[in-house]
Structures are given as structure tokens and as C-alpha cells.
């Protein structure tokens, strides 16, 4: 069944690598964002008792990308979180590819469904 070029073992190694790199990159960007936030706003009061998320400017990928490109530290920290959420999504995408290479239609289909659900959540907030 298995395609000779890509064994289960190779898939497992690749999955492990994707997860590791994703977390490390996200953590590095998060540290940068956190230091930036503290450098700019260390003395501001931290009050998160009231939810203001409905009006958050960091609720769309476009705004996060634009803010991070402009050097806004809050947007950079939020970008780290987007990268982190994208890590398991990338893992599922890799699994889709692996099942296709192994000509396993059933599991390629299931993995594609999971991938589509995750992607719609990350890109559009689950189709709201």
C-alpha cells in the first residue's frame, strides 16, 4: 500500500518537525511582541475585567498582518498567536499529503475535511 518514497516513519518524522518548528517560531515572535508591548505600555493599567473584544482591531488576519508590518507590538504578538494556531493546521495539511501519497483515499478525505474545517475557522472565523 505504502508508496516506497514516503513511509509511515518519514511521515511521523515530518509531522514532528512541523510541530516543533511551528511552536518555536511562534514563541520567538511572541517574545518579540511581548517585549515591545512592555517597552511601550509597561505603566498603563492592565484591566481585563470588562470584555471589549467585540471592537478589537486585532480580530482579522488582514488587520493583524498590516499592524505587524507597521511594527505595532500588539499586532506582532497577535501574529505569533496566529502562527501558533496555524501549526496544527499545517500538520493536518501534511497528513492530507501523506495519505494521498499512500493512495489512501478514505483517510485523505477525512484529513481534508478536518483541514477545511480548521482553515474556515482560522480565515473566516468559522463562516460567520
Amino acid at each position: 500500500m505504502n508508496a516506497p518514497r514516503w513511509t509511515d516513519h518519514d511521515v511521523e518524522q515530518a509531522v514532528g518537525r512541523v510541530l516543533q518548528v511551528g511552536v518555536l517560531v511562534a514563541a520567538a515572535v511572541a517574545i518579540g511582541g511581548a517585549l515591545g508591548m512592555l517597552a511601550q505600555h509597561a505603566r498603563l493599567p492592565a484591566d481585563f475585567h470588562v470584555f471589549r473584544g467585540g471592537t478589537s482591531p486585532l480580530g482579522s488576519l488582514r488587520a493583524i498582518g498590516r499592524g505587524a508590518a507597521a511594527g505595532d507590538s500588539r499586532a506582532i504578538a497577535q501574529l505569533a498567536i496566529v502562527l501558533l494556531i496555524a501549526t496544527p493546521v499545517a500538520r493536518v495539511a501534511l497528513t492530507v499529503g501523506a495519505f494521498i501519497l499512500q493512495r489512501d483515499r478514505l483517510y485523505a478525505g477525512m484529513a481534508t475535511l478536518v483541514f477545511a474545517l480548521l482553515l474556515s475557522s482560522l480565515l473566516w472565523g468559522g463562516g460567520r
Binding site: 510541530l19 514563541a27 511572541a30 511582541g33 511581548a34 508591548m37 492592565a46 481585563f48 470584555f51 471589549r52 473584544g53 467585540g54 471592537t55 478589537s56 486585532l58 480580530g59 482579522s60 500588539r74 499586532a75 504578538a77 497577535q78 505569533a80 498567536i81 496566529v82 501558533l84 494556531i85 496555524a86 501549526t87 496544527p88 493546521v89 500538520r91 493536518v92 478536518v114 474545517l117 480548521l118 475557522s121 482560522l122 480565515l123 473566516w124 472565523g125 468559522g126 460567520r128
Partner: peptide
Amino acid sequence: GVTAAASAGVYLHRGYIDPAIATPVM
């Protein structure tokens, strides 16, 4: 990770994820 990513994406768009809280926690 996959389970949490599914709802985290929705919550990101809904403003539940504030970097000032999520970054030190993460």
C-alpha cells in the same frame, strides 16, 4: 492541538484573544 485550533480561530475573529493576556500565558 487540532481541537483547540478549531475554536481558537473562531475566537480570534470574535476578539476573545487579547495578546496582552494570551502572550504571557502561552
